[in-house]
Amino acid sequence: MKEYFVKYMLMAFALSSLFFLFLIFIFILFEGLPLFHKAGLKHIILGSKWAPTKGSFGIFPMIISSFLVTFGALIIGGPMGLSCAIYLSEYSGKRMKMFLKPALELLAGIPSVVYGFLGVVYIVPLVRDYFGGPGFSLLSTSLILGVMILPTVISISFDALMSVPKTYREGSLAMGATKWQTIYKVVVPSAKSGILASFILGMGRAIGETMAVIMVAGNALRTPLSILDPLRTLTSNIALELAYASGDHRLGLFSTGVVLLIIIMILNYIANFGIKKGS
């Protein structure tokens, strides 16, 4: 009797959380799709002019910007995170692991506004002084996002590396491979789908990040032509304008949300596919 109660109770919670997710999805589609109908898919996706109060809803520069900062984050955070995961799983002793893992989780818990703040205070002036431009730029944003995705990349890659059987390592070492040869010829290839998944989930984190990006990206309404140009991402666009938008302007922001949602869903799908294929 009690068992049943617990079971159905848990099921109700599980289903309701799914239901809320579904509700959010429907809500965004419901609000976002009408404008696609009214202004045209091509006008929105490929249009380069965003002037929603004057009937221009082009978000092409923002789509490009979102992709650019995401890849920028990956270029910086990917190799760094993977190196860190390799160090943690292959080289560090038990005590070091016990210290570094929680430290990493702490890093994941820092609010994004703090990253943004550090970015404005240190990274932006540094980029301005050493490379030129306004400092609020693709480069600064990529640097900040690169650090922000580290916990995701490290912890998922770490799990993937740790799940490579010890016997693979022994087999390789017994055949006269050095430790490093064993790592890059056997351990990393065996964990590659998990590592790939960590990169993609890191990208998902980067593309969805808003607060820190608004603070360091400069939010200019055009396609950046160099890494020192300011830019505006999809998420920033929504967050910056939603407070005062009304009518078609508001709908335009929801359309931005629809595009973002679809991109994130695709990324998650690829990540899950990667994890499944590896196991």
């Binding site: 059987p165 016997t167 693979y168 022994e170 087999g171 390789s172 017994a174 056997v186 290839p189 065996s190």
Partner: peptide, 9 residues
């Protein structure tokens, strides 16, 4: 040669 054959993948 170990107890459990462990070819590399």
């Amino acid at each position: 040669v170990f107890a459990v054959p462990i070819p590399l993948p």
